[in-house]
Amino acid sequence: MIRDVALGQYIPGKSGIHRMDPRVKISLTFLFIIFLFVGSNYASMGVMTVLVAGILLATGIPLRQYFKSLKAVLFVVIFTSVLNLFYGSGQVLVQWGVMQITEGGVNRAVFIALRIVCLMLLSAALTFTTSPTELTDAIERLLKPLKIFHVKVHEIAMMMTIALRFVPTLLEETDKIMSAQKARGADLESGGLMQRVKALIPILIPLFVSAFRRAYDLAMAMECRCYHGGEGRTRMKVLKAKKSDAVAVIGALLLCAGVILLNIFLPGTVR
């Protein structure tokens, strides 16, 4: 059950988005997320929404997968939109005691919902189409300039690689420990919040102990395989930006320029 958690899972495929340079993918995802919040009227927001929808379709991954990733944030989306309904000004649509829903409020609610949903979908599209190793690799390259500030870029990337590698292993282990504790009569499902948190302790302690043991083993295995940091290390897979990546970047920049223009020439709906 615990294994079903969709944790940035990669879904192999052959779409153009899959084959894109992960560095470009990450950069563009960030750019688009920023522009989701730049768009301040329905026209520019519409452009971004259509763009996100286009990306989703282009990945060739069943939409069902995307809905699954949305489920986790559904509550946040509803909660913030409902909250936003009561803010804002403009024409009053519904009056209910001191509470009132205004036109501005409705607009805000729609925007915030759209932004969160698009943000989630975009990041899902990124993790669905990019293998964890590609992701960490790309992050390592993108952060490389930070080396001049003595940021240990290679070490950070290596830690991410290992963390990703051990997520399924540790989840499996958690499952096992939970079953083992249940078999010994541990009650994990009933009681108030405090009781449940307390019930987690007998699960977390063995999990931590085993994680440290694994870390020790892994460190030894890495040393056996001559690991000595990023110095003098080569890579089997070297990232190469292709022509199609350049096209994607140019397209994205044009789109963003369009969004800015729409923002300038059309009245803002929110803010």
Partner: peptide
Amino acid sequence: NPDNQLVASV
């Protein structure tokens, strides 16, 4: 332990 000596996820 075969689990603890593999570094990468592929």
